[in-house]
């Protein structure tokens, strides 16, 4: 995509020069459109809704997470007194459970309408890391972006289906909101000031998603009876899908197992 853009034309530079004067350039916080509720569909009957829960595991030994050197920013060094590592592979104490896997209903939902989400997902830049590292939210739901650090951060989202944005938060306590307008698995975030900082958000037009916890567990609730494709996404190990059919009030348990990439070094 970037490559194609390169050939779109040198004339684009001139056009951009004109447009920046008119528009001011850069991305702005989009105003939060309330809801994220699909319109026109039937409501999910919570009395008959079921549940899909389960766990995510990794088969084999995953590579050791990369160590992070924060000496590019003295504030980050001061805020982190222990050795820091990337969160690429968050494996439980049993050596199998895999955290930070985004699990969601990929296909099979009918024409339902969903209540507008009441919670406000937040991504916090704290101790020069993103919290959380992987999370989900709804289309049209405002995302609160917070800088809790006494140093500067820029938050740079690099989606493909949504609008890319890059905003600075130079002062501790600064907040902003951004609303994604299209579903997308996954939108990566990075901080160009602190190159080790990265996070991912899954943006969906329905509420059926979860992120595996430190024990690899996830739980997708109030799912209407039906046949679904459930997908699990991991930032390095890719995706895995399973078909599941649930009846009224039924709870189905499934397990996703990712194959560890080749690598002799043990995880942290």
């Amino acid at each position: 995509m970037r490559l194609r853009n390169a050939w779109v034309g040198w004339t684009a530079a001139a056009a951009l020069a004109a447009s920046v004067v008119a528009c001011g350039g850069g991305s702005k916080d989009t105003s939060a459109e309330p809801g994220g509720a699909a319109s026109g569909g039937e409501k999910v009957d919570t009395a008959t809704a079921g549940e899909v829960k389960g766990s995510v595991a990794v088969d084999g030994t995953v590579p050791k997470n990369d160590a992070i050197k924060m000496n590019a920013d003295p504030v980050c060094v001061r805020e982190n007194t222990t050795p820091q590592f990337q969160e690429t592979y968050e494996v439980g104490s049993d050596g199998k459970a895999l955290a930070n896997v985004f699990v969601y209903v990929k296909d099979g939902l009918g024409n339902y309408s969903y209540d507008a989400p009441t919670d406000k997902p937040t991504i916090d830049q704290k101790n020069c890391r993103y919290h959380p590292h992987v999370f989900g939210m709804r289309v049209g739901q405002p995302l609160e972006i917070v800088n809790s650090d006494p140093t500067l951060h820029n938050i740079h989202a690099m989606p493909k289906a949504n609008q890319e944005f890059n905003n600075g938060q130079p002062i501790q306590g600064m907040k902003m909101t951004h609303t994604f307008t299209a579903k997308e698995i996954m939108v990566p975030f990075k901080c160009d000031v602190h190159s080790w900082m990265n996070a991912y958000v899954g943006v969906l037009d329905h509420p059926y998603f979860a992120v595996s916890d430190k024990d690899g567990k996830f739980d997708i609730k109030t799912l209407p009876p039906g046949a679904y494709t459930i997908e699990a996404w991991h930032e390095k190990l890719g995706t895995a899908t399973q078909q599941v059919t649930i009846g009224p009030k039924e709870t189905k348990e499934i397990t996703f197992t990712f194959k560890a990439p080749a690598g002799p070094t043990p995880t942290n």
Binding site: L3, V20, G25
Partner: peptide, 12 residues
């Protein structure tokens, strides 16, 4: 300046 404001388009 333009390449920063427009998020580094390769052409610019």
């Amino acid at each position: 300046g333009l390449t920063v404001l427009f998020l580094l388009p390769p052409a610019v």
